[in-house]
């Protein structure tokens, strides 16, 4: 279960800039083809209507909002692929 695989420290520390285009492309590759992107004064909001998930991207932070643990993990992994990390 998630509980057992949980470690005390994060597996990586992400940094750097996130490319919204890159993210949308990777989402599409993972099957999220209904991603709708909106921009409002520098903040990007990606809505995945079929899966009821929202990704809100600001300059140095990203917020993933979902109602489904599996979706969250999938989105997190795609997002981490788009960022540099150590």
């Amino acid at each position: 279960s998630d509980d057992e695989s949980a470690t005390k420290y994060p597996q990586c520390y992400p940094y750097g800039n996130l490319s919204v285009d890159d993210l949308v492309q990777r989402l599409a590759q993972a099957g999220f083809t209904d991603a709708k992107v909106e921009e409002l004064s520098g903040v990007f909001i990606i809505t995945l209507e079929n899966d009821s998930g929202i990704i809100k991207i600001s300059e140095a932070s990203t917020h993933i909002i979902s109602g489904n643990g599996k979706l969250r993990e999938k989105l997190r992994d795609i997002l981490l692929e788009c960022l540099s990390s150590y």
Binding site: A60, H63, G67, G69
Partner: peptide, 23 residues
């Protein structure tokens, strides 16, 4: 600490936040 390391290396961390909704 991780935060000190960020400062010394001059890189900006990207913060990831999650919100899960449970009915």
């Amino acid at each position: 600490s991780v935060n000190e390391a960020w400062g010394e290396l001059g890189v900006t961390p990207h913060q990831l936040r999650f919100t899960e909704r449970v009915e």
